[in-house]
């Protein structure tokens, strides 16, 4: 028997939860609001919350003063590129582990996961030197390679947990009808796995977009994605709050919105299936 919840109690919970929610979200909201202020209003004391002259000049300023479109494109290319490349490598691997498991499948999965636990500083110097000597420092190629490799274990794991849920009989039936291995993967498995693959893609684009160790260490100007571009505001330029806010809003808006759609996949992807 479900207990009837009094409306009064529900109201109290609602008020508390909304207050906390807004408090946690406040820095993002404040950044968004500040991006529409003039620099003078942005540091005015006492600060104005909504009643200021809304202006979009910061957005045009940021675009014209720096090469914002370049950094944005770098972020797009690096995060999408590394995710797609990762998927291409991971789909066959996850397929074989989910449908043709061997004695060692579990060990291979665990070992792949363990590579994710290698702290990046442990390999920073060799990677830096290898890219320097091959002329790949500050190129998108270098970052696509590195981000593909660091996110590959997560991609394999996520796909594996999704593929496990697809009944193997369907694949057998296709095989009996004479489907070759590749057509089995491409025409039978992939369509059924599209939701899982899409979730994996989404989560990995988010992770790659926000990755800030390798992007900061391996880029300078040409290939810098938004993470590294925003870091340049840590100099006195960061004191121009309105412009910092405009640049930040543009950098996080696409991913915060994508992120809201990926809540469930996030739990699954980041806990490696340990919490569902």
């Amino acid at each position: 028997m479900a207990r009837a919840v009094t409306n009064q109690r529900k109201l109290v919970v609602t008020v508390i939860a909304w207050s906390i929610g807004i408090a946690i979200f406040f820095p993002i909201l404040w950044t968004f609001l500040t991006s529409f202020k003039t620099e003078a209003e942005a540091i005015a004391s006492p600060p104005s919350f909504l009643f200021f002259e809304w202006t979009t000049e910061n957005y045009t300023e940021v675009q014209s003063r720096s090469n914002y479109p370049l950094h944005f494109m770098n972020s797009v290319i690096i995060s999408l590129g590394s995710t797609v490349l990762g998927l291409l490598i991971a789909i066959p691997a996850a397929w074989s582990m989910a449908f043709v498991p061997g004695k060692r499948t579990k060990d291979v999965l665990m070992w792949m996961l363990s590579t994710k636990m290698l702290p990046p500083v442990g390999v920073l110097i060799p990677i830096y030197l290898i890219f320097r000597d091959t002329g790949l420092l500050d190129t998108r190629t270098a970052l696509v390679i590195v981000l593909t490799l660091i996110n590959l274990p997560i991609i394999v794991w996520m796909l594996y947990t999704y593929f496990k849920e697809i009944p193997g009989e369907i694949l057998e039936a296709a095989r009996m009808d004479g489907a070759t291995l590749w057509s089995e993967v491409i025409y039978v498995l992939t369509p059924m796995a599209v939701p899982g693959i899409a979730s994996t893609l989404l989560l990995n684009v988010i992770l790659a977009w926000n990755e800030a160790f390798w992007t900061l260490n391996l880029t300078a100007a040409k290939a810098a994605p938004l993470t590294a571009f925003i870091a340049s505001y840590s100099s006195p330029e960061g004191l121009f709050y309105a412009k910092l806010s405009a640049a930040s809003t543009m950098a996080i808006a696409p991913i915060v919105i994508l992120g809201w759609f990926s809540q469930k996949q996030l739990v699954r992807g980041l806990t490696f299936g340990a919490v569902k």
Binding site: V5, K10, V13, T14, A17, W18, I20, G21, I22, I24, F25, P27, I28, W30, T31, T34, I206, W209, N210, A212, L216, L226, T227, A228, I230, A231, Y233, S234, G238, L239, Y241, L244, S245, S248, A251, I252, I255, V256, L258, G259, W260, Q263, L266
Partner: peptide, 30 residues
């Protein structure tokens, strides 16, 4: 049970999607 649970969830989850350099600079400066 509450009203607008989905929206509160969205508000609470949002900081996770903010890139580290942005959140650090926003906190530091603003």
């Amino acid at each position: 049970p509450m009203w607008g649970q989905g929206i509160v969830r969205i508000l609470v989850i949002a900081p996770f999607f903010v890139m580290p350099t942005v959140s650090a600079l926003v906190w530091k400066n603003m």
